[in-house]
Amino acid sequence: MKLRGVAHARAGDKGDTSSISLIAYEEADYPRLVRHVTAERVATHFAGILRGSVSRYEIASLGALNFVLRQALGGGVTRSLALDTHGKSLSSALLDIEIPDD
């Protein structure tokens, strides 16, 4: 199943760094996110645009993960030639990741 079925997300930017939250709708699904949506998995998913590394932070009290993608915005909001210079639409791309139905 796609992440979109169990979680929601929002993307933000600072310079050339994108941060994307991933929040479980139900607390019970949070451990699945922790298990399947690793920093490596996210780095692989965004390989086409990512030139830096990915860090993952766990916020158990919110049932959420926060991903920080460095060098992911084509040089940064102000100089990027991309159509979506802020990378706002990356949240929707994250939710397309497939995880097992367990």
Binding site: R10, G12, S19, A64, N66, V68
Partner: peptide
Amino acid sequence: KEQILYEIHDPAAYFTPDVVADFSQ
């Protein structure tokens, strides 16, 4: 929840001129 994590990197260390805020809990 979406707004709390918006444009935050390390939730335990959100830097402002007034404080290094900790949103991790």
